[in-house]
């Protein structure tokens, strides 16, 4: 068994490929990839390229960012339901966080379709999402 799951995930992100795993037993997807299916614990999983689409359900923004992101501009953080099923929370690039009212208004319009975009944030390639407009 190849245990270097995180390295494979991030190495592929650098090439613009977003990988998840799909369980051969329960057919469910796990994202980001783990060693076993998150739903049924089966070891029988295959690596699959995720569609990179989904729905944004909620987002907000904090006044106290985690220390890693102190040097970054203020960021929206949102809950995305990916088309394959898994829920993933990450940076939402174009969500309006300019004021509390704009966050309120932005959330009223949800859920909205989103498209994944790999971006280098605070020194690492990560999966972010853009709201499709």
């Amino acid at each position: 068994m190849e245990f270097r799951t995180a390295k494979k995930f991030y190495d592929n992100l650098a090439k613009g490929k977003i990988y998840g795993i799909r369980c051969r037993k329960c057919k469910k997807y796990t994202f980001p990839p783990l060693l076993r299916c998150r739903e049924c614990s089966s070891e029988s999983v295959e690596w699959v390229v995720m569609k990179g689409t989904g729905k944004l359900h909620y987002y907000s923004s904090t006044m106290l960012p985690a220390i890693k992101f102190v040097g970054e501009p203020p960021s929206a953080y949102g809950l995305v339901e990916m088309s394959e099923g898994p829920v993933f929370l990450t940076k939402i690039n174009n969500a309006d966080i300019s004021s509390p009212d704009s966050i309120a208004k932005g959330n009223k319009a949800l859920p909205l379709p989103v498209k994944a975009r790999v971006r280098k944030i605070a020194g690492m390639d990560i999966v972010t999402f853009d709201i499709k407009k």
Binding site: L89, T90, I121, I126, T128
Partner: peptide, 27 residues
């Protein structure tokens, strides 16, 4: 507070979640 939460956030997945713009106040 930021230093304190830097240490505290070791309580959150540091393989994937933390690097994906993790934000405890939102989450």
């Amino acid at each position: 507070a930021q230093t304190l939460w830097g240490w505290t956030d070791f309580g959150v997945d540091h393989v994937y979640a933390y690097h994906h713009s993790y934000d405890v106040a939102s989450a």
